[in-house]
Write a protein that binds this DNA or RNA. Structure first.
Lengths: 205, 205
DNA sequence: TTGTTAGTTAAACAGTGTTTAATAATTTAA
DNA sequence: TTAAATTATTAAACACTGTTTAACTAACAA
């Protein structure tokens, strides 16, 4: 077996670990993930993990970053709407919610430090503490365009973006935690959520 | 030692356990709470816990219920304002935020099932699954009064209450998790939060 | 004093993440 | 092909977790 084959095999096992971890998280949540659950499912010894990952946290971190990527891709897939930045903004958040609800356990881990407060901090530090996240940057740009186009009255775009974001975040977490909500009720909640928020930012105070 | 003294002594130890647990949670969060941490601080053996509580979950549940009580008291302390139900509503949420930020770790545990998804469900089941919580009942009544007084256009009070609540919940969790925010920034966020939400629900669509 | 009860604990069990040292497998070098 | 070196894998242990069992001690009542 040559060098390349070897590295490929390594990658395969690493990916298998991640795949098994993903399925466990989907079933039992991030809290339900354990090294031994992973290795039992793979017919390996627990110690094998530490050949492919620094520790359990690195596995979770990898999946969390995957989640960030998915959500970023979802919001970036919204095509620019020069004439109606407010419509665009709503589409961005609609996609955001949709994607978050598609990976509920990962989303919780991403946002709530579900396994230790380390993750988010290190992630932030790596990107430079107080720099805006790509998603937040998008939102701010969009809101600024909305102001320029006269969709909203003048305001601090970052402050407004943060409020819409935290509000939407709250709704999503509620929808995830309260599992037994009908899809009709979800739609009602999301609609009213946007109705209130978008009316709110359009009011001239 | 008489019977009453004996029961009193029992209560004292129970309360000491809770007190120690509270201080550990304040420092290390609900996740950082462990039976052995409690009993070491009290110079007892770990097994003692199970004479005063069914299990660790019951300790957390007790503190979580305490948190519910505090928050309910805080929102109930707002005096009824017949003429301006919207001002009253804002005061209710202001108090809610203030109290939640006073017990951040407990609030997280209350809302996010920080230690197993059991807590919230059993708590809900005990009160009858789909009955409104006391706080939610307050909000709905208030909003209905606001509609009657002409503060807001007609709407589903429960739906609107849920949206304001989830939005505020999202803001609070963000404020708790991102520990290093100045109090000025907190104030700015809370102000803009209410500005958007209250403008939003007053808009006639 | 005896018997009963309540309070308390040592020890163990099953589970967690992780490390160490030894072993098995495989690739490289001679 | 054989020997050396590297890599992959694991068994076993450590230090934690929550919890249970059986034993023990202390205090009370008869």
């Amino acid at each position: 077996m040559g060098r390349k084959r070897q590295l490929q095999k390594q990658e395969e096992i690493r990916n298998e670990i991640l795949e098994v971890a993903r399925s466990i998280i989907a079933k039992d949540g991030v809290r339900g993930l354990s090294i031994r659950k992973i290795t039992n499912a793979m017919d390996y010894s627990p110690a094998i993990i530490y050949h492919y990952f620094k520790d359990k946290g690195e596995i979770i971190e990898t999946l969390v970053n995957e989640g960030y990527g998915r959500i970023l891709a979802a919001v970036r897939s919204v095509k620019r709407n020069e004439d109606e930045p407010d419509t665009e903004l709503r589409e961005v958040f609609t996609n955001y919610i949709k994607q978050a609800l598609a990976i509920p356990e990962e989303y919780k881990a991403m946002m709530l430090n579900d396994e230790g407060a380390v993750l988010q901090k290190t992630a932030l530090l790596e990107r430079g503490i107080s720099r805006r996240s790509p998603t937040m940057q998008m939102l701010c740009d969009n809101i600024q365009r909305g102001i320029d186009k006269g969709c909203y009255p003048p305001c601090d775009p970052e402050l407004t973006a943060q409020i819409i974001w935290t509000a939407t975040f709250g709704l999503i977490i509620k929808l995830i935690i309260e599992k037994d909500i009908s899809s009709e009720q979800v739609e009602r909640l999301v609609d009213r959520h946007f109705e209130i928020l978008f009316s709110g930012i359009k009011v001239r105070s």
